[in-house]
Amino acid sequence: MIQIEKVNKWYGSYQALVNVTESVAKGEVVVVCGPSGSGKSTLIRTLNRLEPIQSGRIVIDGVDAYGPHVKLNAFRSHIGFVFQQFNLFPHITVLENCTLAPTRLRGLKPSEARDEALTLLARVGLAAKARAYPGELSGGQQQRVAIARALAMRPPLMLFDEPTSALDPEMVGEVLLVMRDLARDGMTMVCVTHEMGFARDVADRVLFMDEGKVLERAVPSEFFARPEHPRLRQFLSDIRTPFAEAA
């Protein structure tokens, strides 16, 4: 589904991605974790070309994302993207957020788009909020609508860029549950997240990044039980025992 080959990216003189090579199979759920500034968000944003790369190749579903003939808008419409800050369109209702792209880009009739959107909203538990405006919802509800909005384009691939980092703690669970159900339905997913519980229970594979490089990749049981790279061991111990040094 995704092939990433020797991707390099610089912001000015700072190298954000260093020779990243990776692949994700159809139906696979991959969690990317790592400390702040490690390049994980940059990596996921290069997958649908929200960020340009300077060298390397990214092929998604057979399409060379940075190739000369790629139709950028059509390419992006096949990739669902969920942002840290939800980014719902606040001037239209929840339902309209979920029908805007399908009617304009998939050519659905308004009634068809509406029916599909209501089904998706029911799936994320928010059918009752269809007529509400995003500003009337909690953060967790907004993020669930954002997932429904992305799914409304029927993408074969979903990308999540720290989907729970902007949420109050009690709302993290409802979003992760929606993501877990999506994974169980066979969706191909790449998730940048700090939720290690989600990585352990839902991911097929976990990647660890630091300083723009993928330092370790493993199935969750290996990843957490037998981390190899010293930087990963440090990272895992830091999130497990944050007060170790103070004690």
Partner: peptide, 27 residues
């Protein structure tokens, strides 16, 4: 991010402006 979210859904520059940014900006 509003513009970016519209682009990520697959809308063009002009469509993102017309459907998402301008309606909010004009208000």
């Amino acid at each position: 991010q509003q513009f970016e979210a519209a682009r990520a859904l697959g809308f063009s520059f002009v469509a993102s402006m017309r459907l998402v940014v301008l309606p909010q900006a004009l208000r």
